[in-house]
Simulated assay, not measured.
Amino acid sequence: MTDTIHVLNGPNLNLLGEREPAIYGHDSLRSVEELCRVETELLNYQLVFRQTNAEHEMVDWIQAARRGAAGIVINPAAFTYCGYSILDALRLVDSPVVEVHISNIYQREAEWRSKSIITQVATGIITGLGINGYPLAVRHIAWLRERAG
């Protein structure tokens, strides 16, 4: 097993800080990456941080990390509701998977936003804590790994 934590972000998160700041806040995806980098460095882990608007690219990244990674933090964004190929790829992952959502998906305006298909394969879910959910997810993966010995 490697000491690498993969943080994978789905569609439209490249516009974080610009897109609906009342829901997603004013911080950029670069700020999220900086938070994750600080956390992984403190915990002596490597970080792979990525964002895509393409489902097939997300699947490729998950498949590349499916064996031997310390874990995956994923904000599937819109793939949360319809990314069945991502769900299938995550089923093959041999490490913890933490699903992160910046907004509280259970309090959103449309009921369909609270129906994550990814949850069925996630080790845990962090929702509604803004970008602070990301370093918490990283910390949790490190904690699980240390606990497992």
Results as ranks from 00 to 15, higher is better:
A69C: 09
G25Y: 07
E20K: 10
Q63R: 04
F79P: 13
Y84S: 07
I102N: 01
L87P: 14
I62M: 14
A22P: 08
Q107H: 13
L90M: 06
Q63W: 14
W112L: 12
R91E: 06
F79S: 03
G83L: 00
I105Y: 12
E34V: 05
Y106C: 11
D88I: 02
N53K: 11
M58H: 09
G68K: 07
I86Q: 10
T40Y: 12
Y84R: 03
N104M: 03
Y24I: 09
Y45W: 03
R66F: 03
S85A: 08
I72W: 02
D94F: 06
R50C: 12
L43P: 14
V98H: 08
Q51F: 00
Q63M: 08
V98Y: 11
A54H: 15
I118N: 00
D88W: 00
C36I: 06
A122S: 14
S103G: 13
Y45G: 11
I72A: 03
E34D: 02
Y84M: 09
A110L: 05
R113C: 06
D88A: 04
L42R: 14
D88E: 09
I86H: 07
A64E: 09
I105Q: 05
V97E: 04
N104K: 00
A89D: 09
Y45R: 13
V93N: 12
L47T: 13
V98T: 08
F79R: 03
A77W: 11
T80W: 00
V100P: 07
E57Q: 09
M58V: 04
I105W: 02
I117R: 14
I118T: 13
L87K: 07
P96Q: 15
R91P: 03
E39P: 00
I23G: 02
S114D: 14
Y45S: 10
A65S: 01
P96N: 01
G83Y: 05
V93G: 01
M58R: 14
A78R: 15
A70F: 13
L92V: 04
R67Y: 03
L87F: 05
N75E: 07
T52P: 02
I23V: 10
D94V: 01
